[in-house]
């Protein structure tokens, strides 16, 4: 329904009804409300850091890397398919190339032989990037903690932002973890530290690919 607006140069503010309130809100920015709608004044943009805005956008369209290690990967796929539909959170395009991905969901047991290639994938991803450890195997080694060939938690080889325990976590669990990651990205926006800043990482050890 169209609002009947006065066409004369009536001084009554239109959007913020109370003149005193409008002054209080707008004057610190040197702005006032235009009688015919909208605002005008010194500043026509809201001051912020580019990082703030970019990270807000990033948080709402995180692209995970299409990389599954073992059983948890099946639940990760199940999260992406129609029943659970992680597309709702802007996350559908599972990218096949690390150069196009923002999040590495480490889904499955990490073995010493696979650790090298995985760290390599992680290093190929552009900054900023986040890592989600899915499953107890990746958080601590889980049921294979005692094994001679298993890395006891992926945080031994790369920084992890969100841990999703479970063996395997339900798709709802992974979605909850990704929501937590959204929160984390938004909270830290403008302040993320690069991967190199987070400290030295190993990239090679015995048992690596030859």
């Amino acid at each position: 329904m169209a609002v009947d607006r006065p066409t004369s140069d009536a001084s009554a503010p239109i959007i913020i009804g109370d003149q005193a309130r409008a002054d209080e809100l707008l004057s610190p920015f040197g702005m006032e409300e235009h009688p015919q709608g909208g605002f005008h004044g010194l500043l026509e943009v809201i001051p912020t850091k580019a990082d703030y805005v970019l990270d807000l956008i990033r948080a709402n369209s995180l692209w995970p890397l299409l990389s599954g290690l073992s059983c948890c990967a099946i639940e990760m796929m199940s999260t992406a398919t129609s029943v659970n539909d992680i597309d709702r959170f802007g996350m559908f395009p599972f990218r096949a190339s690390p150069r196009q991905a923002d999040v590495l969901i480490v889904a499955g047991t990490l073995t010493t032989k696979m650790a090298g290639p995985l760290v390599r994938l992680w290093e190929q991803m552009p900054e900023p990037k986040w890592c989600v450890a899915m499953g107890t195997c990746t958080t601590s080694g889980g049921r294979f903690k005692r094994s001679y060939s298993v890395v006891q938690g992926v945080d031994r080889v790369m920084p992890v932002d969100v841990y999703v325990p479970g063996c395997p976590p339900r798709p709802e669990g992974l979605i909850y973890g990704m929501m937590k990651l959204h929160e984390l990205v938004k909270q830290r926006r403008g302040e993320w530290r690069t991967y190199v800043d987070r400290g030295p990482q190993r990239t090679h050890w015995e048992g690596d690919v030859r």
Partner: peptide, 9 residues
């Protein structure tokens, strides 16, 4: 498990 031996890093 070489991950347990930081001296090799």
């Amino acid at each position: 498990n070489p991950l347990e031996r930081p001296e090799t890093w």
